[in-house]
Design a protein around this nucleic acid. Structure first.
Lengths: 209, 209
DNA sequence: GGATGTGAATGTCTTCACAGCT
DNA sequence: AGCTGTGAAGACATTCACATCC
């Protein structure tokens, strides 16, 4: 165990975790690498390799104990604690994120929402009063935000990123269709819906040879 | 050229395309692999490899002609035509998608929206009347939907996927946090926001060693 | 017996480095 | 001279296959 962990491995851990939670609910005591593979869309060998990077969780001949492995993966992914999230941009996407129930149930707490539009500031969404853009730096550091979700137009995204990073945030989830520059100790993930659609059109377009 | 194209290559083509459009607007006649690399967050060699998979677009000593390369990549990605999209599920996410202006400007036309909730059916969003779930099969095939965006709860997602695939759709963009099973000739991309957040918490959690 | 954990083999993607055009 | 296009090398990821242990 304990080599360098690839991004794909981490992504698969999240998928295994989901299957494990279902298995725990279905009160299965153990689960095999093969079943985890099936549900996660990969192979049994891959599952074993991924897990072996972090330790030895299974029992030979038996499989993996579901409850224990669930806790182990939660620990690896940092899900043993709750995380404080700010949503920046109270447009349609921001609104959908604030209302998204899966965040809360998976340990993510939206504790601040921001917008530049004075008409929106002051409104209350899901218990959060929308705060003005000027309050960004102060509130982000006071409220100890762990993760900033950027849901502003592309033109504003880099500036928002710079400001939250300067205020101490080390993880960004960016919905704007632009490539953000961040210091290398800041984690960044992009959700880019047009890009996903373009992967689909590529597939459609090449399929009709 | 003309070997098997990897998913990463296609993803990068979308990013190059974005930079190219900016370059065209800035009226740059040509662009070098190095500049494309910079803007796309990759290396010059990677840009040249990616492009060389599809042809020989550059001039040695000069770089790539921006306008021509833009058209070439649009052609490769299938963006020389418009695509007909259905959004299934008129919740918060569906609502954000219907309102998302970048779709339309990038060649994606939302031509149908569906929901099971009788209270929502009949409402008009962005020019689209929300249609009842029962109309899914009929409308999807009549309106010749190319791409279905699945924005329903996880429990309903597989059934919706099966139905649109049966109605002839060959490309799905899934926002539900479940692994969908589709025939192998159907293109599928997932947008999974909890999974993205979990990649971030992994990074945060390992950073504080 | 049955399923894990893991080196070794294979496959895939990225980077290097330079020949070949313009 | 400058920058592309591309085989070859290198890095990385996945799959195989089997010894190991419950």
């Amino acid at each position: 165990m304990s080599k360098k962990i690839s991004e794909s491995t981490v992504r698969r851990l999240s998928l295994y975790l989901r299957s494990l939670r279902e298995a725990v609910e279905g009160s299965a005591e153990t689960i095999s690498s093969e079943e985890l593979a099936d549900r996660g869309g990969t192979t049994a060998a891959q599952v074993r390799k991924d897990l072996s990077m972090f330790g030895s969780f299974g029992k030979r001949g038996m499989g993996y104990p579901t409850a224990e492995l669930t806790r182990a993966i939660e620990e690896i992914l940092g899900l043993h604690r709750r995380w404080r999230v700010a949503v920046i941009g109270a447009g349609k996407i921001g609104s959908a994120l604030v209302a998204y129930r899966n965040f809360h149930s998976r340990g993510f707490e939206i504790v601040a929402v921001f917008d530049t539009d004075p008409a929106k500031v002051g409104a209350v969404w899901g218990g959060q009063r929308i705060q003005p853009d000027e309050a960004l730096e102060r509130v982000v550091s006071e409220r100890e935000i762990d993760i900033a979700i950027i849901a502003v137009p592309g033109t504003a995204a880099q500036s928002v990123a710079d400001r939250v990073v300067a205020s101490g945030v080390r993880a960004l989830l960016n919905f704007a269709p632009v490539r953000l520059r961040v210091p290398e100790d800041v984690a960044l993930r992009n959700v880019d819906m047009v890009l996903e659609l373009e992967q689909l059109t590529y597939a459609l377009n090449s399929a009709e040879f």
